[in-house]
Amino acid sequence: MMSRGILMFFGVLATYISALFGINLIPKFMLERVRPEGTMLPYAYTEQELRGRRVYVREGCVYCHSQQIRAKQNGSDMERGWGQRPTVAQDYVHDSPVLLGTMRTGPDLANIGVRQPSDDWHLKHLYNPRITSPGSIMPPYPWLFMKQGEYDRGMTLDLPQEFAPEAGAQVIPTQEALDLVAYLKSLKRNYKVEGLK
C-alpha cells in the first residue's frame, strides 16, 4: 500500500512541476530576455512617477483599468483610440507589479499619457470624476486633496460650485495627487517597437 502512496505523491508532484515550468518559469526565463532594442523606449520611471505608481497600486486602480492594447482580432481597443498599436512584452520591462489588469469597468490606460496630457483634467477627475465625466462610476479620491488653509502649495483647483467642499473653499492637490498624475501622464505607447517582425 505504501507504494501506492508514493506513486500518488510523485503523480501530484509531477503535475505540479509540469505546470510550474510550463506556464510560469519557462515564460519567465523566456520573456526576461526580452529587452527594448535600438532606439525603442520605454524609459524607466522617474522618482515621482514611481511614487505615483505606488498610489495607483494603493488605491486599486488596476481593478477597473487595464493597461494593455490588444490587436484588432481581440477587440476594438485601437478603434476606440486607446492606442495605435498592440502592446507587447517590451512595453512592460520596468513594471513591478505589472498592472495589465483584467477588467474594463473604466477605459484602458496604457496610452493615457498621450491621450490626456492635461494636469487640470486629471486632478479634477481624481477629486471627483463626475466633474469632468458626467455619468462616470469611478470613485472620488478627496483624500488626495486638501482644503486651502490646511495646506498650501500655491496651486488651487478650480471646482464647480456643486463639487466644492463648501461654498467658496479652494481645493489643493497634495503631492500624492501630483505624483499620481505624473505617473498617468508617463503612460505612453507612442514609441516604436523594434525587433518584432
Partner: peptide, 22 residues
C-alpha cells in the same frame, strides 16, 4: 507549493502576470 512560488520576489513585467494567473 503554489503559495511559496507566487511570493518569490523574482518576477517583473509580463512574466509576473503569467505567474499571477497561474
Amino acid at each position: 507549493a503554489i503559495y511559496v512560488v507566487a511570493y518569490l520576489p523574482v518576477y517583473q513585467g509580463v512574466p509576473q502576470a503569467a505567474m499571477n494567473w497561474w
